[in-house]
Design a protein around this nucleic acid. Structure first.
Lengths: 106, 106
DNA sequence: CCCATCCTTGCCTATTTTGCCAAACACGCC
DNA sequence: GGCGTGTTTGGCAAAATAGGCAAGGATGGG
């Protein structure tokens, strides 16, 4: 089954790191509804276009997204849709934390 | 459904960030097979115990793990087992990347 | 009370990440 | 070739992260 070498964990971590940023999660969310070019994503994220371009480069390098050129614009799409399943689990983590907070108060 | 405020993405990112490190993935892996104390995890990870303790603190703060004291030792356990489902998806990302690499060569 | 054990925290340094601006690059069009 | 639009990259500064050592709790045993 799983081999669990140090390198293996590093490879996994690289993929997860590529998601571990608010703007990148927003981008994933947007891409889950279809392809988007850099400019569109820039408007959604609200950072400088160079910043968004770099976020996308990180995600692409990790294998999360793929690109397709169309004239002068570059369209990004999700490459492995199963990452969308993460969010349900993340929500339940947040929910647990919230409940704990509530218990601590009341 | 999902509200998608900036704060929402930050909260999600915090949880994912808490996983985005090789040692922390190793810890999650270990905890998936049962509770472990700090010392046991330290041996598995191979870093200084203070480093491991801090990794655990980050993960706890994010809601990934919970603790239970037993005498002088502190046992950590996974709090939300669904995060284990991530790994299957991560593997498929890595597999895609590997295939792409192979295509690029041959 | 003192000690040993287990864990966490303070402090410091090295590294990585993030983000912007400006410059470069790519492409289609005239 | 020159221009405009869309994207990436170089360079830099600010901030966050990681890791070790040493010091500081906490807890149970004698």
């Amino acid at each position: 089954m799983s081999v669990k070498t140090k390198h293996h964990y590093e490879a996994r971590a690289k993929v997860i790191k590529a998601m571990a940023h608010p703007s990148r999660l927003l981008i994933i969310d947007a891409l889950s509804r279809g392809e988007r070019c850099v400019l569109e994503l820039t408007e959604l994220v609200g950072s400088d276009i160079s910043t968004v371009s770099r976020h996308l480069a990180v995600m692409k390098n990790a294998g999360l997204v793929a690109t397709e050129k169309s004239g002068t614009t570059v369209n990004y799409r999700l490459r492995v849709p199963c990452i969308l399943n993460f969010f349900g689990c993340i929500e339940s983590v947040l929910k647990e934390v919230a409940e704990e907070g509530r218990r601590a108060i009341g």
